[in-house]
Simulated assay, not measured.
Amino acid sequence: MGFSKRSDDVKRRDGVVFMRRWVCSNEGYRRKEYLNMPNRKKRPKPITCTGCQAALRVVRLKDNNIWLARVFSYEHNHDMVSVAELQFLRSNREVSDGLPAQVRSMSSIGIKTSQIMSHVALQSGGYERILLTKKNRLANVFWEDETSRNDYIAFGDVIAFDTTYMTNTYNKPLFILMGVNHHFSTYVFGFALLVDETVTTYSWMLRVFLRCHNNKKLLVVLTDGDNAMQGAMRENLPESTHRLCAWHLTKNAFRAWNDPGFTKGFVDLMYTYYLEEVFLNKWNNLIETYQMEDSEWCQLQCIRRRMWAETYLHGQFVAEMRTTQQCESMNFCFKKILLKRYTLREFITAIDLAVTKMRHIERQHDYMSKHTLPQLPDQTDALRIYYEQCSKFYT
């Protein structure tokens, strides 16, 4: 449920804004001269103004520059829009220039506009999954299928996020949500073609992803530490554990201080479980030894230590995913099959084919697991009986 708002009034003093007012988009009425036009040539637009009085007015206090709400009217005289209708609100269409070149490319080869929208809606899981600009141009697209939804129920506790570029002619980031299945093979739960990498865009993507999966929350999310993604996670996944990629941290540690000794010490703190007091002592000794007290990178990692140190993450189920290497491998594979000249239809079709191949490999693994047995240790091994039992229950 929701409504759209618009800016109504702004006042400045010496060039500085000190008062602003926002109103409901249904505020006011259409002017009479536009209602009765005898020589009208175009069909009139539908009337949306209902005289709604909902509004918010804020002022900046002169003494301390604090903004204060002076007027807040929350009662509307019209119905709120449903969740499926939120995409049509003017406020939700106010996004930066999206991907209009994609639609033009498909249109240039003779595909009708209605067919373009139907195709994108089908891949996205419905028209409510498509975000449009205020000029009805395509901005963000998220798509998955029923198989991904079912597998998310079984394997969606730990997911890695990553973006890749240079996969399409529009040079827009392709966002991949992936995890591992019961064979410890990489599995993709969804894709998103985004207009940019901001908190707003990432938040939209996470909301759509969760809505597709009945708001089943994630236990652990693994990322490369992107600040915009961290902001989106705090807003949409506050209860999930955010874990930083160990591979990226190791690489950045070497960049911060080009000394193998420092990198080795940092990796030890990242992978080894210590009591918190011992960990802090070792961290301080490492910083003092290499005289990195003024290093901004080290100060940041100390603040974020609960997102990478085994001391604080010990016992957390991560499905053996400590890095985003699965994402990097997937990106490499996609870049081999995705050509920059592809139109949107060709782009999505190529990705679907890659996912189909991935699922075919999973079926092969299932077959091997069900119809074959692993090679067991020598007959004299005292634990052989337990190996035999495990071979029947585990893949």
Rank of each mutant, 00 (worst) to 15 (best):
N77V: 08
G125Q: 02
V120F: 09
N65R: 06
H119N: 08
V120K: 01
R70Y: 04
A69L: 02
H78R: 06
Y74M: 06
Y74W: 03
G110A: 08
M80T: 04
T113L: 14
N77H: 04
D79L: 13
K62Q: 09
A69K: 07
M117C: 00
V83K: 09
N77A: 10
S82N: 11
V71H: 10
S114T: 10
N77I: 09
D63G: 00
V103R: 06
I116G: 03
L86V: 05
R90N: 12
S124E: 01
L122N: 12
R90D: 05
H78K: 06
M80P: 00
K62H: 06
Y127K: 14
E85H: 07
E85T: 02
V95G: 10
S91T: 15
S107H: 08
S82P: 00
S108M: 08
V95A: 12
R70E: 14
L89R: 07
Y74N: 12
L122M: 11
H78V: 02
F72P: 00
N77L: 08
Q87F: 09
E128C: 07
A84R: 12
S105F: 02
S107N: 12
I109V: 14
A69N: 03
L99V: 05
F88N: 10
V95W: 05
E128Q: 14
N92A: 04
N77T: 09
D63N: 10
Q123P: 02
R90W: 02
D79K: 14
P100D: 04
D63H: 10
N77C: 13
G125N: 05
P100M: 03
L89Y: 04
I109T: 09
Q102L: 13
E85V: 01
V103Q: 06
G110Q: 06
Q102I: 00
G125C: 09
T113S: 11
S73M: 09
V103H: 05
N65E: 13
S105H: 04
G126L: 04
N92W: 02
W67T: 02
I111R: 02
N77E: 10
V120T: 04
F72M: 09
S82K: 10
S96G: 12
V71T: 15
I116K: 01
L86H: 09
I109F: 11
G110W: 04
K62L: 03
D79G: 05
S107E: 12
V83T: 09
V95C: 15
Q87K: 11
V71N: 14
D79H: 10
A84E: 15
H76D: 02
Y127M: 11
N92I: 01
D97M: 13
P100G: 06
K112T: 11
A121Y: 02
V83M: 09
L68D: 11
S96D: 08
A84G: 06
P100T: 01
S82T: 14
D79C: 10
G125E: 01
K112A: 15
I111P: 03
E75M: 08
L86I: 05
E75T: 10
M106H: 01
A121K: 05
Q102G: 12
R90S: 13
L89Q: 12
E85M: 10
E94C: 14
L122E: 12
S107W: 00
V83A: 08
L89I: 03
T113D: 08
N92E: 13
L99T: 01
I111Y: 04
A101T: 01
M80F: 15
S105W: 04
D79E: 15
E75C: 07
S82R: 08
A84K: 13
L68I: 09
